[in-house]
């Protein structure tokens, strides 16, 4: 990776400034409107709403069980919301007649526990979608997979199986796999939570690069310094409800709600 030895924090600050400048206009690239969801009697999402512009980075934070991951999964319909609507690039994602496979082609997802296809090499993991879903030729798909693996700094690991990779490498393959579909939007579900502390940096670095490339990203994470550095907006969820949302400086430094402050204190004391 070209900038592997540069300081990620310095990068991050530069990105944050760039994003601040870009913020503008009616934000309706992704519009989440009044989403509610129940598992049986238990309500896990309660009237959740937020919007993102193209190229925005929104970070969902909140205590475990607050519905962050479920919210994320509603966007690519791995979970179904019972009420509310989600629009992506003008199309209603939540409409009953939407082809979910079509939708998922356009929305990339990165999982907490990687979920790499255990029987495929890194290259085949990335190339499977282009081959089978986008119907590219073997050669085209391989070429695209190569390019994406290079982008995440794994050009030398194309033939390794998941079991032969470190956690950080696995997650970078997971990111490449999602990128290979050339998605409109990337969803990250706690991408660093399953990693040993010393491996978190390499994954965050790749994510920083994506931000710099202008990728639209919806991220669930507990990495608050990452959130502060790159997010255009932070959405704080608790018990399925949006407690507070705003730009990181405001939400982190001057939270309006007491619950937000308490959550941030708890997180900070762990850091």
């Amino acid at each position: 990776m070209s900038d592997a030895d540069s300081n990620p924090d310095a990068d991050a600050n530069a990105d944050a400034d760039a994003n601040d400048a870009a913020e503008s206009g009616d934000r309706d690239y992704l519009r989440v409107a009044d989403i509610s969801k129940w598992y049986g009697d238990e309500q896990v999402l309660d009237d959740v709403s937020f919007e993102m512009d193209r190229g925005d980075v929104t970070v969902l934070i909140g205590p475990s069980g607050s519905g962050k991951s479920t919210m994320l999964r509603c966007v690519n319909r791995l979970a179904e919301a019972q009420e509310g609507e989600i629009f992506l690039d003008g199309e209603e994602v939540t409409a009953p007649d939407v082809d979910v496979d079509e939708l998922r082609r356009e929305v990339g997802m990165v999982f907490q526990d990687f979920n790499l296809f255990a029987h495929l090499t890194a290259l085949d993991n990335v190339a499977l979608g282009p081959r089978r879903v986008l119907d590219l030729s073997e050669a085209e798909a391989d070429e695209r997979a190569h390019a994406q693996l290079e982008r995440v700094g794994l050009a030398d690991q194309t033939d390794s199986y998941p079991a032969e990779l470190s956690g950080g490498q696995k997650q970078r393959v997971g990111i490449a796999r999602a990128l290979a579909m050339e998605p409109k939007l990337m969803l990250f579900d706690e991408p660093t939570s399953a990693l040993d502390p010393e491996l978190i940096g390499e994954v965050l670095e790749v994510m920083h690069d994506l931000v710099a490339d202008g990728m639209t990203m919806l991220v669930v994470t507990h990495e608050m310094s990452f959130a502060r550095a790159v997010a255009d907006e932070i959405v704080f969820l608790d018990e399925g409800r949006v407690v507070e949302r705003g730009p990181p400086e405001q939400l982190f430094d001057n939270p309006e709600k007491e619950r937000t402050a308490r959550f941030l204190d708890r997180i900070a004391s762990h850091d």
Binding site: D101, R104, R105, M109, F111, N115, L116, A118, G129
Partner: peptide, 15 residues
């Protein structure tokens, strides 16, 4: 076979 494998397949748009 882990549940996540199926989820991941669906997430890249495989039926």
């Amino acid at each position: 076979v882990e549940e996540g494998q199926l989820t991941a397949g669906r997430a890249i748009g495989l039926s």
